[in-house]
């Protein structure tokens, strides 16, 4: 099967400056499990565009590093 790489605007954005290396709270809490830790940086990121814009990731982050935007198609 052919593959194409296409960009997607994902709703959850992590401020890597603030994000604590080693913390996985947002990754643990996401109901859709759409966040992961980037092994290179140790920081969280959105690994799949699956989002209910519900907000535990942002609400629970101890250092306010997570922003939940409305998914592009709904914005």
């Amino acid at each position: 099967m052919a593959h194409a790489t296409s960009r997607s605007d994902v709703p959850v954005v992590i401020d890597e400056e603030k994000c604590i290396d080693g913390c996985t709270l947002c990754v643990d809490m996401c109901p859709l499990d759409s966040l992961a830790i980037n092994p290179d940086s140790g920081k969280a990121y959105m690994h799949v565009d699956e989002c209910w814009y519900c907000g535990p990731c942002a609400a629970r982050c101890p250092v306010d590093a997570v922003t939940v935007n409305i998914p592009y198609l709904l914005r």
Binding site: C51, W52, C54, P71, L73, L74
Partner: peptide, 13 residues
Amino acid sequence: ASGYLYGTYENPT
């Protein structure tokens, strides 16, 4: 209506 798979009324899980 948005076409976004997870933009459902209910929690999409």
